[in-house]
Every structure is written in C-alpha cells, then in structure tokens.
Simulated scan of single mutants.
Amino acid sequence: MTDWTAADLPEMTGTRVVVTGANSGIGKEATRAFARVGADVTLACRSVDRGEEAVADIERTESRLPGEMQVQELDLADLDSVAAFADGWEGPLDILCNNAGVMAIPRTETHDGFETQFGVNHLGHFALTGRLLDALRASDGEARVVTQSSAVHERGDIDFDDLHGERSYDKWEAYAQSKLANVLFGYELQRRLDAAGIDDVTSAVCHPGWAATNLQRRGPEAEGSELKRLLMKAANGLFAQSAERGAWPMLYAAVADDVAGEYVGPGGFMNARGAPERQRSSERSYDEATAARLWEVSSDLTGVDYEFAGDDADTAATDESDTADSATADD
C-alpha cells in the first residue's frame, strides 16, 4: 500500500476535467480535490440543481479554490442526453472520470430500453467516452480516461444471452455484471488505443473500496424498505471510509504515471479502505475475448462506433443511429 492521499495531487492549473455523477459522494469529493489544485472541473450531473448545490457547498467550505467549477446536464440513462453533452463540449479535455453509477436497485429500464444498472454504469459511459475521444485527443499532454468500478465486479459475469435481465433479474447480479463491464471496458479501451498507436490517451480503472455515499441508500429507497436503509446506514457508519477517502483511487488513477491499463483500489484492510495502490482485478476481467465481444455489443446497442486512428489521422466516435435499434444483444 502506498501513502498517497489527495494532498499529493500535482498543481493542475489549466487542466480540464469532467466528473460524471459529481453532485454527491465520491464525484463531489473528487471535484473538490481537483479544484483545490487549480483544475477546471465540469460536474456532469443528471440534476443541474443538485450539481449547483454541490458547487455552492464546495465553495462555502473551502478557503482557497483556484480551479473553476461548472455544471452541465448529463443523464447517462438517455443516449440523447449523452450525445447532447458531448456535442456541446468545446475544446480539449484532459481527464474524463466515468464515476456515476447506480447500485442494487429493482429492475427498471433506461430511456433507451436498457436495464438501468447496465445502461447507466456501463453503456452510458461507453457512449460518452467514445463521443469525447476527439476532445481527449486534443489535449496538449496525455489525456486520461478513468472508469470507476467496484470490488463487487469479482462476483460478476457477462450474460450475453440476457444482458438486460429480461428473463431473470437479481439486483446484485445485475450490479456485479455492470461493474465487471466497467473493468472489461477500461482494459479493452487501452488495448485498442495501443493497437492504433495512440499514446496521447490512456485508460485506467479504479474502485473506491467501501465508501459511505448516497449510493448505498438508493437501492433500499427504491424498494421502499426503511429497515434496509437503516441497516445500510449503520453498516456505513461501522465499516466504511469517508467519501473523501473513497475518491483517492480515482484521483490517483487520474494523475499517476504508468497506470495505463491498470486497476487501482484502496490497499488497506480487505482492499476496502486506505491509500490507493495498483491491484489485480478478477480473472474474468482479463478475458480479452469477452471484452472484445462486449465492446461490439455495446457499440451496437448505443450506436456509437469508436473509429480508432493513429497519430496522423483523426479519431472520432460516429453515431450509427439516433438511438440503439435494440435493447438486447443479438447474441
């Protein structure tokens, strides 16, 4: 385990950062930490009002905040919203933190007909990253994509025959699948960048350990279970680290050298808390055939086709259709 903390972030004046789901929890604390060292952070939030409340709270509680913060609407459950966010982005992008997520909720569907956990946690970020590749390539230095996963990915399996839980649904299995998809995506993105000879964009994956955030209460609230909400609150109080410390792996993965294709998480007790370190993810996460298949399915579902090119050509993500033709994989 390292002794790295957010205090070790370098000076980042002029660095442009996007953090999805930045209105609370880990995303909010990452935004705070980036802005403290001068980065200009865009809080990409489903609710602009809650994003503005987060900015106001950060500004109220920080004595010195050289970085600028702005809020832009982004609903990862709606591919049209993802497209609008990316189309509205101007200029280069240095760091993209794919942080937003939902956890262990009853089965619902996104605007485009995807199971919500798979649709928000994986497909929304897959589409967003592809659409922002031009902006990432335009960075003056090495741009970084950091995708937030979870230790729960170790329980996950990609069920290509029932990706959206239409035949059988378990909220924790669906969450684990979506988090495994995050790791597979992060690794496959790096492999495809390497294969195209692109060295000015790198991809890393992280997990926060057990951090006390709003994420844990949303599942019980969606079920209408006050008992489960109280039990989760008690567990957070006993075992979880703070959201501030839960943001450390993502911050480390965003700025550390030589983390391309790496998996970063807390190095303390049971990898649930502590300073960040490079770790090994589950065996399934290194299955390149599964990662390649998931990539193609994700491209088909979202209509976003990553067009990787070398340094002498443009890199872009093009829209094959306004929305995905189907909410289920053809496989």
Rank of each mutant, 00 (worst) to 15 (best):
S149Q: 10
T116L: 08
A54Q: 04
R36I: 12
V120I: 15
F114H: 11
Q216F: 02
E296M: 07
G25T: 07
A204E: 04
A235T: 10
I158W: 00
T202M: 02
L180E: 07
N182L: 05
L133A: 00
F85E: 02
A316H: 05
Y252S: 05
P10C: 04
S321P: 14
E244G: 11
G141S: 09
E188W: 02
R144I: 05
A272Y: 06
G25A: 09
D305T: 15
K233P: 00
D258P: 10
A100W: 15
R284T: 11
M103G: 00
R46P: 15
L189N: 07
G27W: 03
D57W: 12
G274A: 05
M69R: 01
G268M: 06
V304D: 07
E296F: 01
W295I: 01
V71Q: 04
L184D: 04
R192H: 13
G303S: 08
R293P: 05
G303N: 09
T290D: 11
Y263G: 07
A143L: 05
D258V: 08
A22N: 12
A222H: 06
H125Q: 11
L193V: 11
N236M: 14
L227E: 15
G88E: 05
N214V: 10
E188R: 04
A317C: 05
G265R: 00
G113F: 04
L128K: 04
V264M: 09
R273I: 03
T31F: 10
L79C: 02
H122Y: 06
S299H: 11
A138K: 12
C97F: 06
F185L: 06
L301I: 03
D200I: 15
S81E: 00
A317S: 10
A222L: 09
A235H: 13
V205A: 10
G124N: 11
E226G: 09
S47N: 14
D94R: 04
S225P: 08
E307R: 11
T42S: 12
D199H: 15
S63G: 15
W172G: 03
G165H: 12
D140V: 01
D311Q: 13
R167P: 00
I26K: 03
R245E: 10
T5Q: 00
S298L: 07
G274N: 04
E173S: 08
F239P: 05
T302K: 10
E166M: 00
E62V: 08
A292V: 08
Q279G: 03
L76M: 06
R284M: 11
R16I: 06
V264P: 01
W172P: 00
G101S: 13
R192L: 13
D87G: 14
D40P: 05
Y169R: 09
G51P: 01
V297C: 09
E173F: 01
L93W: 02
A143N: 00
Y306V: 09
Y187P: 01
G303L: 12
V183Q: 06
V18F: 14
G274Q: 01
S139L: 08
E29L: 12
E62C: 12
D287C: 03
A54Y: 07
I58H: 06
R16K: 13
A253L: 06
D311N: 11
L136G: 06
G25P: 08
T213N: 10
L193A: 03
A135R: 07
A254Q: 07
S47M: 14
